[in-house]
Simulated assay, not measured.
Amino acid sequence: MTPLLSLSTLIDKINERVGKGAFWLVLLMTLISAGNATYRFIFNDSSNGLLEIQWYLFAAVFLLCAPYTLQKNEHVRIDVISGKFSPRGLAIIDIIGTLFFLLPMVVLVLWLSVPLVTESFRINEYSANAGGLIRWPVKALLPLGFLLLALQGVSELIKRIAFLQGLIADPNAKENKPSAEEELAAAIAAAKAKEGK
């Protein structure tokens, strides 16, 4: 199991680096959006290329951050149901979900997307919009993102099995710190309290 845990750690490091790198795309997307809106307001003109690059960057953020989100155990769950299970029960459910839902879905998307990317690259596909961008790079994000998601699924599977064998701590355990939502609510409450003084 030790080599598999080493593989899991390597996958985690790769997806953490990719996910944190993709965070910067949000800033870039915001700057492009603001620049395009400003240009449109001042010159009463717009660029399809700038609009499309925003969509491409959004796709990149979504696809490249999904594996990192899975790693951090932040995907949507039905907490009312999952909260009733023991850590072992939740690990078993995660194993079943990964084997029978996540990995088959990822393999299907990879199977279907690779020919689309290959054909787009072969014909050097461009957007049909005037001033539009080349399409294959954004299409290539689909198999890349799902490959990284498949790898993270394997990593999570390894961690759940290791946990059930008593080799590692509960991978579903949350750190004892407020969630992002709780931090935001506390900041809003503090601001309101400050305004009231």
Rank of each mutant, 00 (worst) to 15 (best):
L63T: 10
I11D: 04
E119I: 11
P178V: 00
Y56H: 14
P67A: 01
I96Q: 10
A34H: 02
I96K: 07
Y56M: 14
E119F: 09
L149A: 12
I14L: 11
F58V: 04
A191P: 10
L108I: 02
N129C: 01
K194N: 12
L4I: 00
I11L: 12
L147M: 11
L164W: 08
F43T: 01
L99H: 04
G131V: 06
L7H: 07
A150Q: 07
N73K: 03
G97S: 12
P87H: 03
L64R: 02
T30D: 07
G166A: 05
W111V: 00
A150G: 14
S46D: 04
R77M: 05
L50S: 06
K20A: 09
D79F: 00
V61F: 03
L149Y: 13
K84W: 01
T98H: 02
L116W: 10
F100M: 12
I95T: 08
V106I: 11
L144P: 03
E195D: 06
E183F: 00
T2P: 08
I81D: 01
K174V: 01
L148D: 11
S47V: 08
L157Q: 05
Y68F: 08
G35F: 06
A193Y: 15
A193E: 15
F100R: 03
D45F: 03
F41G: 02
L149T: 15
C65E: 07
R135V: 12
P3M: 06
E181W: 01
I161V: 13
A193P: 11
R122H: 08
L149Q: 13
Y126K: 13
R77S: 05
A180T: 00
F163P: 10
L103K: 11
L70K: 04
V138A: 13
V18Q: 09
S6K: 14
L7T: 12
V109R: 02
R122C: 00
E119G: 02
L133N: 06
V138Y: 07
E156N: 15
A66Q: 01
V114D: 13
N36Q: 13
G35I: 10
I53E: 05
A173V: 00
A128D: 13
L157P: 02
F41Y: 01
L90H: 05
L164D: 07
A37K: 14
S6T: 15
N36P: 03
N36D: 08
V18S: 07
L142Y: 08
L148Q: 09
D170I: 00
A190F: 03
A186L: 10
P87G: 01
N176K: 09
L10Q: 14
E74Q: 04
S120M: 14
I53M: 11
S82E: 03
F41A: 06
A128V: 11
N73E: 12
T30H: 08
L110F: 13
V107Y: 05
E74S: 02
N124W: 14
I32A: 10
F43L: 14
I161R: 11
L103R: 13
L108N: 01
T2R: 09
L5Y: 03
T30M: 14
P104Y: 04
